[in-house]
Amino acid sequence: MGGHALADTTVHVRRLQGGVSPPVVPEAFSGDTRLVGRWHNKPFEYDLPALEDHILSATYAGTGTASVKIGRQTISAPARSGMISFWPRGHRGFWRVDGAVEVSNAFLGRSRFLACSDQVGNGREPDLLGRVHFSDPKLFTIMTLINDEISSGDAISHLFIEQLLDLACLQLLRAHSATSVPISPGPRRGLSNWQVRRVTTYMRENLAANIRIQELADLVSLSRFHFCTAFRMATGHTPYGWLTHQRIAHAKTLLKDRALRIIDIALIVGYETQSSFSASFRKVVGLTPSEFRRRL
C-alpha cells in the first residue's frame, strides 16, 4: 500500500476512534502492513467506509459495549480484556462504542493475506469475517507479542514482528474465514518463474555485496518467512544456497583468466578470504579453485 492509501486509512481510523490520531509506528512491514502501538480509544460513533486494509485490534482494558451495523445486521459485544476485533477490507459499517478502551492495532494489507493463502494451498482472496470483542486467545497473544516488540527496540524486533504478523494472518485465515481454509491439503506453490529470474538476476548483479534475505524478499513483495519457503519450493535450494551457486558459477568463469589471482576472484564473487572461498568452491564443485584451474 502506498503512502496515499495509508493516509486514507489512518484518516478514517482516526474518525473511527473518537477523532484521536492513532500512534502509527513509522516502520513499515512487508505486505503493506503498518502497526499501531498500545493506546487509549475514546467513545465514538462513525460510519466507516470500505478501506484498502484489514484492521485487526486487540483490547487490553475497557468498559462499555461496541457494535457495528452492516445493513440490517448488528454485531455487538461488551469490551473485555483479552478480546480481538477485526474488520475486513472492502466492507463498510456503522460503528458505535460507548466506553473507553485500551487497544493496539494492525493495518494488514491485501497482498500479505494473498501470500498467506498461497502458502496454505488456497491462493484465493480470503473471505474474512468481521469480529467485535471476540475471544481468540491465540490471536490476542500474537498481538500482545507484536506490541511488546514494538517498544523493545531490539535489533531483531523487525524480523520477529514479521514472523508474528504471518502467524496472525494464518490464524485469521484458519479461524475467521467465511469458508474453511485448508492448511495442508493440495500442492503448495513456490515462486513463479519470473520471480525466480528477478531474484537470480539481482544476485548475479550484486555478487560482491552482503545480500540480505529481506532484500530478496522485497523484490517479490513477500515477507522473509514466505519468501524462504516459496523459494525453496521453486528451486530446491535455500536462498543462501542459490546465492552460493551463483557465486561459484561466476568464479568458474573467472578462473579461466589466469591473470586473476584466486584471492581477487574470491573478493569479486563476495568472499572476504581465500580460505572461505576455497571451502565453498570445493563443497559445490568437488575441487579447490586451484585444482579446477589446473584442469582447464
Rank of each mutant, 00 (worst) to 15 (best):
G2H: 12
D8T: 11
V11Q: 08
R14Q: 09
G19M: 06
P23H: 08
V24C: 04
E27S: 10
F29K: 01
Y46A: 02
Y46E: 05
S57G: 12
T59M: 10
G62L: 05
G64I: 11
A66Q: 09
S67Q: 12
K69H: 05
I70G: 02
S76D: 07
S85W: 06
F86E: 03
P88Y: 01
F94S: 14
G99E: 10
G99M: 12
G109V: 03
D118K: 14
L128C: 02
V132C: 05
V132K: 00
V132M: 12
H133S: 11
K138L: 15
I146P: 07
N147H: 10
I161D: 02
A178I: 03
A178M: 05
N193I: 05
V196N: 00
T200V: 06
T201G: 12
E205A: 14
I211N: 06
E215W: 04
S223D: 06
H226E: 10
H226I: 02
F227Y: 10
G236Q: 08
I248Q: 04
K252M: 15
L255Y: 00
A259Y: 07
I262N: 04
D264M: 03
G270M: 06
K283Y: 08
T288V: 03
P289S: 10
E291C: 02
E291Y: 00
R295M: 14
L296I: 15
L296R: 08
